[in-house]
């Protein structure tokens, strides 16, 4: 397969030293194996995320996203924009939909963009990395590179909200998306297709502002993974990853549970399965260490 090239929108949480920096590490290694070339949009800005709503207003939020489109167009005309973060992807996609369907909004956006010397002529396609993997590469292609199957590891595929609703990945159901399970299977591990909390909300930003509400949901998500005998949870979303992983201690305090389950990105599983070491997979970035994965990553590659 020829090299696939995209404009890359990593998002705030993926930056160095930020909460999803390990996601970026693993994505970079994964893309290298898969011959996917990601070129970062120069000087990209925050998508505004869903939680910014109180102060954001409608137009400022879309303008913020539109700035990234304009920069992408300026530097990489014609390239699709790929985001790894669910919120970035959703925020950008929403802006794309709204601007496409409202001439007024489009005109207003253009006017505001002028202030920073930018312009939009064409609407870019906004893709999530998972879409790129599934739709542009396909499971067969992804599977070809597996040299170290994660045999015997039982993994709960936690899809969460924003990669799933309202847009979701083509062909998947909102209530029971199966692509993470297919990915788990693809890397040689054991999926849990009937994991019933796979699309439960992690609480989103309420994890910060009203933690008791979010943690009640995090508890359900983790508990059900345990009930199904999962050794780890895998997710495509940085906020899901963070919420479900880092608050397990707090949940334990609140509910008297003894949760200690690693929460991984799909890209980390793939890197290990593709023969990458712990560092390339960003395993050092886990607050709850993924020992089992570290062991596998330390093993020699089967060729």
């Amino acid at each position: 397969m020829a090299t696939k090239e995209y404009a890359f929108y990593p998002g705030c949480s993926s930056q160095k030293g930020a909460s999803a920096s390990n996601y970026l590490t693993s994505v970079e290694s994964m893309c290298k194996t898969l011959d996917v070339k990601l070129t970062e949009i120069p000087d990209w800005n925050c998508c505004g995320a869903s939680i910014g709503y109180a102060e954001a207003g409608e137009l400022p939020r879309h303008v913020l996203n539109a700035r990234n489109f304009a920069l992408s167009e300026q530097h990489m005309p014609g390239k699709e924009i790929v985001a790894t973060c669910a919120a970035c992807w959703l925020g950008a996609r929403e802006t794309r939909e709204r601007l496409t369907h409202s001439e007024t909004l489009m005109a207003d956006t253009r006017e505001a963009l002028k202030e920073s010397g930018l312009e939009i002529n064409e609407m870019p396609n906004i893709r999530h990395m998972v879409e790129v993997l599934i739709e542009d590469l396909g499971f067969d292609e992804m599977k070809k590179h597996v040299v170290r199957p994660l045999e015997g590891v039982k993994i709960a595929g936690y899809v969460g909200c924003q990669t799933n609703r309202p847009f979701g990945v083509d062909g998947e159901s909102f209530e029971n998306p199966l692509y993470l399970d297919k990915m788990v299977e693809m890397v040689g591990a054991e999926p849990i297709p009937d994991y019933e909390q796979k699309v439960t909300c992690c609480g989103g930003a309420l994890a910060f502002s009203e933690p008791e509400k979010a943690q009640a949901q995090i508890k359900d998500i983790v508990e059900s993974a345990y009930d199904h005998g999962a050794e780890m949870i895998v997710t495509p979303c940085p906020l899901c990853q963070a919420n479900v992983e880092i608050y397990q201690g707090q949940v334990n305090k609140r509910y008297g549970t003894k949760f200690d389950i690693p929460v991984m990105y799909y890209s980390q599983l793939m890197v290990v399965a593709y023969g990458g070491d712990a560092k390339a997979a960003g395993l050092n970035g886990q607050v709850i260490k993924a020992r089992r994965l570290e062991e596998i990553a330390a093993k020699p590659v089967k060729r």
């Binding site: 207003g57 137009l59 400022p60 505001a112 930018l118």
Partner: peptide
């Protein structure tokens, strides 16, 4: 850019 957007809105 944001200032302008707020103003328009």
């Amino acid at each position: 850019m944001l200032a302008k957007a707020y103003e328009i809105e």
